[in-house]
Deep mutational scan, measured.
Amino acid sequence: IRCIGVSNRDFVEGMSGGTWVDVVLEHGGCVTVMAQDKPTVDIELVTTTVSNMAEVRSYCYEASISDMASDSRCPTQGEAYLDKQSDTQYVCKRTLVDRGWGNGCGLFGKGSLVTCAKFTCSKKMTGKSIQPENLEYRIMLSVHGSQHSGMIVNDTGYETDENRAKVEVTPNSPRAEATLGGFGSLGLDCEPRTGLDFSDLYYLTMNNKHWLVHKEWFHDIPLPWHAGADTGTPHWNNKEALVEFKDAHAKRQTVVVLGSQEGAVHTALAGALEAEMDGAKGKLFSGHLKCRLKMDKLRLKGVSYSLCTAAFTFTKVPAETLHGTVTVEVQYAGTDGPCKIPVQMAVDMQTLTPVGRLITANPVITESTENSKMMLELDPPFGDSYIVIGVGDKKITHHWHRSGSTIGKAFEATVRGAKRMAVLGDTAWDFGSVGGVFNSLGKGIHQIFGAAFKSLFGGMSWFSQILIGTLLVWLGLNTKNGSISLTCLALGGVMIFLSTAVSA
């Protein structure tokens, strides 16, 4: 259960009878995928790494000078000259100064003066180019299975845990398959586009800190620079940016070097996208990844198990997540596992009318040892309800109150669905055939309105939902006002479609 501690969480529900669903994975976010007769899966884009970055340009932001020398000439005696002028490691300046009897010249006039100092770069920052084909995306998957609280967001041991898996995709191999043991396998067909235009970005490294910066900004930095990788004795261009020549006297000129420019660069980098280094690879934390999940090989585990009949206890007080759902960790005293956990939410304890829904599909106890633990997640209705676990006299209950409203949740879900469709863009549509167009249209309606429909009408039977949709269509056909007619027709059509397409 990876997503319960992530604030940016998206719930995606598969269409009834569908074998695939489109998701948008982004750094700092987590996606929970639910479908009829399929286990619930949490998917998170953990890291995006980039390798084989080529150094484009380096800037010196802290330097020192040494070996200063000057040469001067009297008027009419030609130009002052130093051998160091031809050495690229030196920074030199030529000027004219007033000369006369007082400073060793027989004539009054302008004399030539040249001053040089050896330039040494102490600290530099480097910009590297990123090729999209060198990106690698690491995705962690977790099935809502027989897990306890100690396994949440624990990325170790996934090789031997059938509840978890790690997959890596690249532009050259965008397809992967996550093996989930008894739950089958989940196929991923990803489109490795981060949403960032790397043709316009460089990877900047300064003092063990890293950013993504725009090329134009990078090339306009007014500091000494050299092109390409460091060859040991780089040729620094624009050395004068960190060196200041003071007022010249008759035979000498003082040279000083400016202080470190790291603070000024940090100020200019305010708002830039931060990154990290992992050995020789860069780690990015921006952008998104679009994936199509193929769920035809994914299956529920323990459908044929019998119900657990022994007593359950709450190991922890049920807690609310950031998303309005409830996490419950229970301990089973029996030894008759594997068995299914009898769990439901009810409005009252007399009729036990089921409300809400299970995020953890078909929760089971897989071990036959005593005191096995299991964590599950529920989506309670707004208002008061009861969490009921167990059967008969051994069942345990917990009162729950959820604040908020169904309308607010439906609106929030619609906005999130619209954002998801905007990110998917043209990849969500198939114009290759008439059937493809209608299929894409259905998927689009489901992406945007599916979660809201589930919130508003999830407790009704599909037949009642179709009746309401048919009534809206009838009202649309018999209303003389054009805008009201079109609105009723659209709402009725969407409702009829979703009542037959969205899983219960």
Rank of each mutant, 00 (worst) to 15 (best):
I1V: 15
R2T: 06
C3D: 11
S7R: 00
F11V: 09
F11D: 07
V12A: 12
G14R: 00
G18N: 01
V21F: 06
D22P: 03
V23H: 04
G29M: 05
G29W: 12
Q36E: 14
Q36I: 14
E44P: 02
V46D: 12
T48N: 06
T49Y: 12
T49H: 01
V50C: 06
A54C: 05
A54S: 01
E55L: 12
E55M: 08
E55Q: 15
V56H: 03
D67I: 02
M68G: 00
M68Y: 01
M68E: 01
S70C: 10
D71T: 05
D71F: 04
D71C: 05
S72E: 05
S72A: 15
S72K: 05
R73C: 12
R73N: 08
Q77P: 00
G78H: 03
G78R: 04
E79W: 12
D83Y: 06
Q85Y: 04
Q85A: 04
S86L: 14
D87I: 04
Q89L: 13
R94H: 06
L96C: 04
R99I: 03
G106F: 14
G106Q: 01
L107I: 03
G109W: 10
K110P: 01
S112L: 00
V114T: 13
V114D: 06
V114M: 09
A117L: 00
A117W: 05
K118M: 10
K118W: 02
T120C: 08
C121A: 05
K124I: 14
M125G: 02
M125C: 11
T126R: 04
S129F: 05
Q131D: 03
N134S: 09
N134V: 05
I139T: 07
L141W: 11
S142M: 06
S142Q: 03
G145L: 03
S146L: 00
H148T: 12
H148N: 11
H148W: 09
H148Q: 14
G150L: 11
I152K: 01
V153Y: 06
V153C: 05
V153I: 14
N154C: 03
T156I: 14
T156K: 15
D161P: 04
E162G: 15
N163E: 04
N163W: 06
V167S: 00
V167A: 15
V167F: 14
E168T: 01
V169W: 07
P171E: 06
N172T: 02
E177K: 12
A178Q: 04
A178Y: 05
L180H: 08
F183Q: 11
G184W: 09
S185Q: 14
S185F: 15
L186N: 03
D189H: 07
C190H: 08
C190T: 05
T194S: 09
T194N: 11
G195H: 03
L196W: 02
S199E: 15
S199I: 08
D200H: 05
T205N: 03
H210P: 01
H210M: 10
W211P: 05
L212M: 13
L212Y: 06
L212K: 07
K215W: 11
E216Y: 06
E216R: 02
W217P: 03
F218V: 10
H219Q: 14
D220C: 08
D220Y: 08
D220W: 12
L223R: 07
P224M: 12
P224R: 03
W225K: 06
A229W: 05
T231K: 03
P234K: 13
N237P: 00
N237H: 15
N237T: 02
N238G: 13
N238V: 06
K239F: 07
D247Q: 14
D247S: 06
H249F: 10
K251S: 01
K251N: 00
Q253H: 03
Q253R: 07
Q253Y: 10
T254S: 15
V256K: 01
S260I: 01
A264P: 04
H266V: 13
H266Y: 12
T267V: 02
A270T: 14
A275W: 03
A275Q: 01
E276F: 11
M277I: 15
A280W: 11
K281L: 00
G282A: 15
H288S: 02
R292C: 05
K294D: 06
M295P: 03
R299N: 05
L300P: 02
K301A: 01
S304N: 00
S304D: 01
S304Y: 15
C308D: 07
C308P: 05
A310V: 01
A311Q: 14
F312N: 08
F312W: 11
T313Q: 13
V317K: 03
P318I: 06
P318W: 08
P318E: 04
E320T: 13
L322A: 03
H323E: 07
G324C: 07
T325V: 06
T327F: 11
V328S: 00
V330C: 04
T335F: 13
D336K: 13
G337D: 12
C339I: 05
K340W: 09
P342Y: 06
V343G: 00
Q344C: 09
Q344I: 14
Q344F: 03
D348Y: 02
Q350Y: 14
T353W: 00
T353F: 15
P354Y: 06
L358H: 05
I359W: 06
I365K: 03
S368I: 08
S372E: 04
M375T: 01
M375P: 00
L376E: 04
E377N: 05
L378A: 03
D379S: 01
S385Y: 06
I389L: 13
G390M: 10
G392T: 00
D393N: 14
D393L: 00
K394D: 03
T397V: 12
H398D: 00
H399S: 12
H399Q: 15
H401F: 13
S403A: 09
G404M: 09
T406C: 03
T406M: 11
I407K: 10
G408A: 08
A410D: 07
E412Q: 14
A413F: 14
T414K: 03
T414E: 03
R416L: 03
G417F: 09
K419E: 11
R420E: 07
L424T: 05
L424G: 01
G425Q: 07
A428E: 01
A428W: 07
D430M: 12
F431Y: 08
F431W: 11
G432Y: 04
V434Y: 09
G435Q: 13
G436T: 03
G436P: 00
V437W: 01
S440H: 09
S440K: 04
S440W: 11
I445N: 11
I448Q: 08
F449R: 04
A452T: 12
K454T: 13
S455D: 13
S455W: 13
G458H: 10
G458F: 12
S461L: 03
L467W: 03
I468A: 14
G469W: 06
T470H: 09
L471Y: 13
L471N: 12
L471K: 08
L472E: 10
V473H: 04
V473C: 12
G476S: 11
L477Q: 04
N478L: 00
N478E: 04
K480A: 14
G482A: 15
S483T: 14
I484Q: 10
L486R: 00
T487L: 06
C488R: 00
C488K: 03
L489V: 15
L489R: 06
L491Q: 08
L491E: 12
L491H: 12
L491D: 13
G493S: 13
G493E: 04
I496G: 00
I496Y: 11
F497L: 05
L498T: 03
L498S: 02
L498N: 10
S499L: 01
S499D: 11
S499W: 13
S503L: 01
S503G: 04
A504G: 12
A504K: 11
A504Q: 11
